[in-house]
Design a protein around this nucleic acid. Structure first.
Length: 302
DNA sequence: TTCCAGGGGTAGA
DNA sequence: TCTACCCATGGA
């Protein structure tokens, strides 16, 4: 399977915290990204992705039962989605040239050359939305715990662990289950409502990948979901390839302030002004600045 | 014990 | 639009 120019699996896998959440597994020594994947046939397979020479990826799929002819195509489509292989970064590169020029440090252009810029997504928008809800107003360790309990408790079992739960499986559970078993606290009704709306067909999250949807329209639709405020909406948009919003949270606010040598945290208004020259790419430019040191000599941190 | 995490909803000004 | 207050959980 072909990979885009400047593609780096390690940098995409660790592009943000998702690789650290179930059911993902990133093996830094073998440089293999893997996870269980539930196919439309109901079969759960284990998918492993590794680099294979220059600008190529090798897939390995294992699972019980007989594979259908359509399974391979479905797995490849999922890989293209979760590695953001179809995201066109050339307009971002052009913007980076316009903003940074052709000389000097040019941090974003260097980041692009090093294979940064593609963000790891879930195979489904539903999974990205659920995980985004689980990142709000809690520590990362609690996010990990809630997601693991969802996967272990409701995900279908595959050859190497549980897949992420289907909307129907989540919709069938009560709010009490999300409070007492998942320990999702006040997020419990949000998770249940989201799952029920998707499972019932009232909410077509996959349709949100449509690039024809104007960004303001997409943002408004996400904000209509219970539990999604500005941070969560812009974070989900980022995973849909829409980067105009900064998706500011306590982590990025502090990180940018530290990197720019500010003792006091700049206000959101100031941060917005700093990244305004990047236009529709403001959020990605900020994210690459905030996470640049993850991908240098410093050890990876979720 | 209090504080605060990769915030959001609501009421009131 | 802005602010105050509340909301659950869990680690420091």
């Amino acid at each position: 399977m072909r990979a885009p120019r400047h593609f780096d699996l390690d940098r995409v896998a660790r592009s943000h915290g998702w690789y650290d959440l179930a059911p993902w597994n990133w093996n830094p020594e073998r440089r293999v990204l893997s996870r269980p994947l539930r196919l439309s046939s109901g079969r759960v397979v284990q998918v492993e992705v590794a680099e294979s020479g220059a600008e190529a990826l090798a897939l390995r799929v294992t699972g019980r039962g007989r594979a259908r002819a359509a399974d391979a195509a479905e797995v490849r489509a999922a890989v293209r989605t979760f590695l953001a292989l179809d995201e066109d970064l050339d307009p971002f590169r052009a913007r980076a040239r316009a903003v940074e020029g052709d000389e000097g440090p040019r941090p974003v252009q260097r980041a692009l050359d090093r294979g940064l810029g593609r963000l790891l997504r879930s195979p489904t928008v539903f999974e990205d939305a659920v995980k985004t809800l689980c990142t709000t107003n809690c520590s990362w360790s609690l996010t990990r715990a809630m997601v693991s309990r969802l996967v272990d408790g409701l995900g279908e079992e595959g050859p190497a662990g549980h897949a992420f739960p289907e909307p129907a499986a989540m919709a069938a559970r009560t709010e009490r289950f999300y409070r007492e078993t998942i320990r999702a606290g006040y997020r419990a009704p949000f998770l249940r409502t989201l799952a029920r709306d998707v499972a019932a067909g009232r909410l077509d999250l996959e349709g949100w990948r449509d690039p024809a949807i104007p960004p303001a329209d997409l943002r408004r639709r996400i904000l209509e979901l219970d539990g999604f405020g500005p941070y969560a909406a812009e974070h989900l948009m980022r995973l849909l390839g829409r980067h105009e919003g900064l998706a500011l949270d306590s982590w990025t606010r502090r990180k940018i302030a530290t990197l720019r040598g500010r003792k006091r945290q700049p206000t959101d208004r100031v941060l917005t002004r700093w990244f305004a020259p990047w236009g529709e790419w403001a959020g990605l430019a900020m994210w690459l600045e905030a996470t640049g040191d993850w991908h240098g000599d410093a050890p990876a941190a979720p």
